[in-house]
Amino acid sequence: MNTTIEETLTSLESRFELKDIKQQRGDLVFVTVKKEQLISLLTHMRDNENFTHFVMLSVVDWIEDGVFQLSYILNNPEKHVDIVFRCMIERENASMESAHHLWKQVATYQRELYEMYGIDFPGSPRVHESFILEGWDDIPPMRREFDTKKYSEDTYFPRPGRESKDPKEHMKNKLYPDADK
């Protein structure tokens, strides 16, 4: 088990299809993997490579490319090494295989992602129950096509009179109104 992170990656490459391996620091590596291989890779990492601690699951919305980037961060508590598995999934009808059977807490992350981004995780416990938002009836609010300013203005009775000024221009016009002439 006294392998370095590089050796671990090499052994992984023989079994899984890894792309864009980027070593950020000595103890932090980013790897992009295919959607179909992700769950088996996570299982392998937990059971064989001693990455037993699931740190978190987050998502980035690449609306231009039409994909969500899921990031599964795993930690090896003995060697204090983090490895981040990125996985691109389609934005349209986004759906991903659930990983709640590997770590219990993944279910909570998946519930949040379903509510905030609309990514479905079939089979994950209580994934369709409301998590933070109560009674949300619009598209999931963290998706980038959701216009939060417009929604807020339509819903929450904005107080009129809010305007912002560029301080430099404002003071210039106030103090030296004739400067440009």
Partner: peptide, 15 residues
């Protein structure tokens, strides 16, 4: 008063 720094948030009231 007017939402403050959360004035355009989807989840906090303004007034």
């Amino acid at each position: 008063i007017n939402g403050g720094m959360y004035w355009d948030s989807y989840n906090t009231i303004n007034r």
